[in-house]
């Protein structure tokens, strides 16, 4: 026990120094094993879904009206304890719908076909390859994981909202007040947030870790595909190969990982 205690303290010391993840694992690896004793450590679940770079393809041809999007948005809201605030200024949104001219601000033109003009589009965090929000965060509370997912560490966020100013897609929300009273049914499996932190879509990182696809993907009846953009055999790559797709504001160089088939 003494040994594990020592190594654990060492680990704690290192992690509080903020040296990041890998030294933590090194200490774990170094902490035992020579004498045949099991070593303390952390690992991923065997059934976790992994990818080199997660991406999403939304087939907007499969949607006709707001009613088609509702179950998708609701699934996310419910699972992530997203509050419904009446005050528009304090709204919290992870995935929502908006018109073509607002979603694809640079592609709008006056003669666009009627279907596209009135079709609601799903909007969410683009999990950019080169995310401006991560670049500006002063505490690394928002960070890009190796698998491309841009995440929020709610434990660390100081609520400076620099990331909200930096995001060119308006994907981030701030908890202007305690969200708890505005959550209809709480999902105990997922934490709520507290006032004063920023939040946004997390590509359902908590579900991928236990082998489940994102909630919106499951609720979409096949209209949303999710997979590894680096894997040529993946479903998303197949869709990107065989369809014309667009991304939001690609000219900014952020490299969004959400693609739309129109």
């Amino acid at each position: 026990m003494e040994k594990s205690r020592r190594s654990f303290l060492k680990l704690v010391g290192i992690s509080t120094l903020g040296l990041g993840a890998s030294p933590v694992l090194d200490v774990f690896a170094a902490s035992g094993g020579h004498d045949g004793k099991p070593k303390a450590g952390v690992s991923k679940r065997l059934n976790a879904l992994t990818a080199k770079r997660w991406g999403m393809v939304i087939d907007t041809r499969k949607f006709e009206s707001k009613e088609d999007l509702e179950p998708i948005i609701d699934a996310c809201n419910k699972i992530h304890n997203i509050p419904k605030l009446e005050n528009k200024r304090h709204e919290v949104m992870w995935i929502w719908e908006d018109e073509y001219k607002h979603v694809f601000t640079h592609r709008e033109h006056e003669f666009i076909d009627e279907r596209i003009k009135h079709l609601p589009f799903l909007v969410l965090c683009n999990h950019c390859e080169n995310p401006a929000c991560v670049r500006v965060c002063p505490t690394k509370a928002t960070f890009k994981r190796e698998d491309g997912i841009v995440l929020m560490d709610f434990h660390r966020c100081i609520g400076c909202r620099f990331c909200m100013a930096a995001c060119p897609y308006g994907s981030r929300s701030f908890n202007f007040r305690d969200p708890r009273p505005f959550i209809k049914e709480e999902n105990k499996e997922f934490p709520t947030r507290m006032k004063g932190v920023v939040e946004k879509c997390n590509f359902c990182a908590e579900r991928l870790a236990v082998g489940k696809m994102p909630a919106c993907v499951e609720a979409s009846n096949g209209a949303i595909a999710f997979g590894d953009l680096e894997d040529p055999e993946s479903e998303v790559r197949e869709l990107l190969r065989s369809n014309y797709t667009i991304r939001r504001k690609p000219d900014l160089g952020a490299g969004p990982s959400v693609y739309y088939i129109v």
């Binding site: 509080t16 903020g18 670049r135 500006v136 965060c137 002063p138 505490t139 690394k140 509370a141 660390r156 966020c157 100081i158 609520g159 400076c160 909202r161 620099f162 701030f174 908890n175 006032k195 004063g196 932190v197 920023v198």
Partner: peptide, 23 residues
């Protein structure tokens, strides 16, 4: 006064991030 979580102010020093202009 602009911070949402002012008690965590020291995170800026505990997790120094040179790529952030705010740092």
């Amino acid at each position: 006064v602009d911070l949402g979580q002012p008690m965590r102010l020291l995170n800026v020093i505990l997790y120094p991030t040179p790529n952030s202009v705010l740092f």
